[in-house]
Design a protein around this nucleic acid. Sequence first.
DNA 1: AGCTGTGAACCGTTTCACAGCC
DNA 2: GGCTGTGAAACGGTTCACAGCT
Lengths: 214, 214
Amino acid sequence: MNNKKIPEATISRLFVYLREVTELDKVNIRTISSSDLGERTNLSDAQVRKDLGYFGQFGVSGSGYAVGELKQSLEKILGKDKTWNVAMVGVGHLGSALLTYSGFSRHGLEIVAAFDTDIRKIGKTFENVVIKPIDDLSKIVAGKNISLSILSVPAREAQDVADILIEAGVKCILNFAPVSLNVPEHVKVKDMDLSRELETLAYFVAGKTNGKNK
Amino acid sequence: MNNKKIPEATISRLFVYLREVTELDKVNIRTISSSDLGERTNLSDAQVRKDLGYFGQFGVSGSGYAVGELKQSLEKILGKDKTWNVAMVGVGHLGSALLTYSGFSRHGLEIVAAFDTDIRKIGKTFENVVIKPIDDLSKIVAGKNISLSILSVPAREAQDVADILIEAGVKCILNFAPVSLNVPEHVKVKDMDLSRELETLAYFVAGKTNGKNK
DNA sequence: AGCTGTGAACCGTTTCACAGCC
DNA sequence: GGCTGTGAAACGGTTCACAGCT
């Protein structure tokens, strides 16, 4: 075992290993080595072993990891026996697309509430979720014990809405608004700034390639 | 000056500084110190100075950075005088939301082509972009000199489509499919695995908080 | 022989701390 | 006095390399 601090990147990769191992299990592959698993996930064998090593020793020297066991262990570690209630704030193009995205619930993430300021949207239903006004956010988030949220409101409203979410007890924000949110220590934010990510990628190939002068 | 290798994280933050400086410029603030800029972006003053330092010395000791100049310098560094053609592949809920998202073009990213396999979608138009079959991808991507792409197809199709994109000359993929894509050295991929990001956030607050047992 | 688990080395990035400039 | 620019130190994470298990 090991009680050192576990890198966030390791946790994130654990979900990737679980995904892969689940596939292997489906096709009845019983055993996988760190190097094979690394190849399937574009990671090094050492990386795979080190990541798994944080949580104990479930490999077998000489043969690798038992797929079924590894799958179960990862599910346990990652809390796959739980479901999470998620609040969605901002039901524009992106927000409504995410509301109808089935990928979340497949991973134990249930969007159980959605909010918007636009009166024309309030009362509408997407995938069994009724859009409510932001004024109701506090009560609903507390009542449904929601600690995860997705923020897809326009940039200028993002900080205000984040404040309301945090005040209501939300602990995590997946932030699609292109702004730097100010949040207290105990709240985790992950920025999903699509334009910025794409521009950053572009920067590194810009030499060889072909943006056009305006 | 400085010709050391520049971290990707630095480039990504440069876009954040530019965003902030653009706001400051709008409200006629003429000067900003590294610590003020750091506060606005939730970064340390040292981080701000080091990032900017990679590209020369545009600060003024004792008073800080001239907002207008810094804005221009950042625009130049980041190639904001260019526009980029982007191909969108997979026009489901998410893909069509992204097609109608105005944030991209505001940043010089023009979605100039969109593709899908679903015959019912082909020929439809979103924001002046006509959906074409994947079979036409190669020709169109080459013809329009497209080096950036957004991949929002189902997981099982993602690798095949990525191969086609790369074969056609695309250099960057913003990947919304929850799979580890195999790509050659010269192609850059940024994974946008929404469920994984949210689950990873959840993991770190799971102790204190309240996922429900299934 | 094959493969894991893990200290140690390495590398990239961030933070510190201070000399130098305005 | 205030703030930049930047080497040096610290940190965090990845890769190496090998002892030990099966």
